[in-house]
Design a protein around this nucleic acid. Structure first.
Lengths: 127, 127
DNA sequence: ACAACATATATGACGCGTCATTGAATGACA
DNA sequence: TGTCATTCAATGACGCGTCATATATGTTGT
């Protein structure tokens, strides 16, 4: 029943899990303690920050992250309440939302990104 | 500020996240609908099932998974309540717990493992 | 034998993600 | 134009994981 291929798959999966948990945990803790935001919050900031064009974004952001639509909605809500992002409704399709970093959001992202990259280097990099 | 190395790290990280989320999600849904257990429950069953020696395990299991001690405790508690695992206190160190699959647990694990491996193959395998 | 410390597991409060659903706007087409 | 289906986002109920602790047991040094 337990073929060698199966064992190898399981090993591979556990390795992904371990990397994911350790890295996500480290990011989570660092971002929370230094910037009072969660990892998912940072990730949305990061996506919005690197998005060049000015389309109706909420939706398209969903295509660039494995997050659920519902999760995104709540994260964005928190970011909005924290004054880091602004939601403005889109003219040509009033179901859609247009996201934009506030100045505070941009500033926080700039600092947090440094920490984020550093931790990725520590956790994923070939030291 | 955004060096090519940074971008590459971020890409690598997003790729891990995507794989993790998609695979974990698929496993979660399949195990829940077909066997009424969560992914973490299955993972504990899996670890206990493959554990050959009969040591006081709770602790050592913690070393083989990225799960928190607290998370493990709760998962094991659920498995116990579901009648899939039994906890017996360890003679030589009464702080420790000794875990063992029940017959029901062993049976469920056998079936669920097939599904689990199949989904890993789908999600991680080079199709 | 007694502190003081260390280790194994459990638990409660809390935050976040998920699912299912809702509300609103749009599209398609007779 | 009116209906029916589709799409975008928000929401409430719920379950799980995390942190900080609690509880019990063990160990060490004097």
């Amino acid at each position: 029943m337990a073929t060698p291929q199966d064992r190898q798959l399981v090993e591979q999966w556990r390795s992904i899990q371990t990397t994911y948990f350790h890295t996500a945990g480290a990011l989570e803790r660092a971002l929370a303690s230094k910037f009072s935001i969660g990892l998912t919050e940072f990730e949305i900031l990061d996506l919005v920050a690197e998005s060049t064009d000015a389309a109706c974004r909420m939706k398209q952001l969903g295509e660039r992250t494995p997050m659920t639509q519902s999760a995104m909605s709540k994260v964005v809500d928190r970011l909005d309440k924290a004054g880091l992002i602004s939601r403005q409704s889109c003219e040509d399709d009033r179901r859609s939302l247009f996201l934009e970093l506030t100045d505070a959001g941009r500033a926080l992202h700039r600092e947090a990104a440094v920490e984020h990259r550093a931790l990725l280097r520590e956790n994923l990099g070939k030291d």
